[in-house]
Computed example of a mutant assay.
Amino acid sequence: MVAGGNSKSDISFAGTFASSAFSACFAEVCTIPLDTAKVRLQLQKQAAAGDAVTLPKYKGMMGTVATIAREGLSALWKGIVPGLHRQCLYGGLRIGLYEPVKNFYVGRDHVGDVPLLQKILAAFTTGAVAIAVANPTDLVKVRLQAEGKLPAGVPRRYTGSLNAYSTIVRQEGVGALWTGIGPNIARNAIINAAELASYDQVKQTILKIPGFTDNVVTHLLAGLGAGFFAVCIGSPVDVVKSRMMGDSSYKSTLDCFIKTLKNDGPAAFYKGFIPNFGRLGSWNVIMFLTLEQTKKFVKSLESA
């Protein structure tokens, strides 16, 4: 990530794509248990009237992680295969395209720091394009994560990620792989804008403070800032996206939003906020730290 002026990337697009995909996949492996907890919390609905005695299955981030772990530790990494599929496509494209798109928006002759608005527009654009390509992987990941421990004798809907892709196409049609594409584009474009633009802006600001250099501490602080802004801004659309992908009864994005608001109240849109921040905060720190180091390594290879 380049913080500051309109400079060309110091490595090739292929190098940036590979670095981004690798960094995103590494962060995914490290943090997917928190993502699984977040999805379960977001899909959990309040008991209907007359069922007040029914206690929620999941409570809090650590409680949810512990409950899922009782299904078997592997349950915490459910959806990791499509998650890696997703990060290879989505992570590689959204970050790999960010610098070229940002430079396109400010113009070839721009000199000096890139305005925050152009950073936001560039990240919004690359987030939308990337998830439009990667939506099927996101759908399969959410559906695998949503399945809890089933009673004895009850078969699972899917035996694995590849089976999930084929089953969805066979039973629901090819178009079903893009279920939830509306809220998913909204969610990922918004979160990508929050993550990349805030990382870029925070890093640029920190580097202007005397004593700070382009090192691990700067990358750590910028990554935490990116995760915080992403969760605050993107949580409502993230909840709608998870519910639409996990439950096919919703007719549209608006229908899901209205039913969630009516049945569960406004607080439902920030359900799983703590695990979401735990996930996105740690994910961004790991991803950006890995990305910065990987890009240095790739640059040395390309310069050799």
Rank of each mutant, 00 (worst) to 15 (best):
G72A: 10
G182Q: 11
S166L: 15
F13D: 01
N188M: 14
P82Q: 12
A27T: 01
G281D: 04
I286P: 00
F228D: 05
G227D: 08
A268N: 06
Y270T: 06
K295R: 15
L221G: 09
P56K: 09
N215K: 12
L196I: 12
V111Y: 00
V114A: 06
S161C: 15
A37C: 10
I181P: 00
L84Y: 08
A222F: 02
A152W: 05
T137E: 07
V169M: 12
F228N: 05
S12I: 01
K119T: 12
A197D: 09
R279Y: 14
L254V: 13
D255W: 03
G153L: 07
V140K: 06
A194P: 04
G265E: 10
E71S: 11
D214Y: 08
Q44V: 11
A164S: 12
K149I: 01
P236H: 00
L121G: 03
V239K: 03
V29Y: 07
V217E: 00
Y270D: 09
G272E: 02
G72S: 08
K141S: 14
A49T: 08
R143L: 13
R94V: 06
A75S: 14
R156N: 09
V53A: 15
Y98S: 12
P151E: 05
A268D: 11
M245A: 11
I190Q: 09
G281Q: 02
D113P: 06
Q171V: 03
L93E: 02
G112K: 04
S198I: 10
A132F: 11
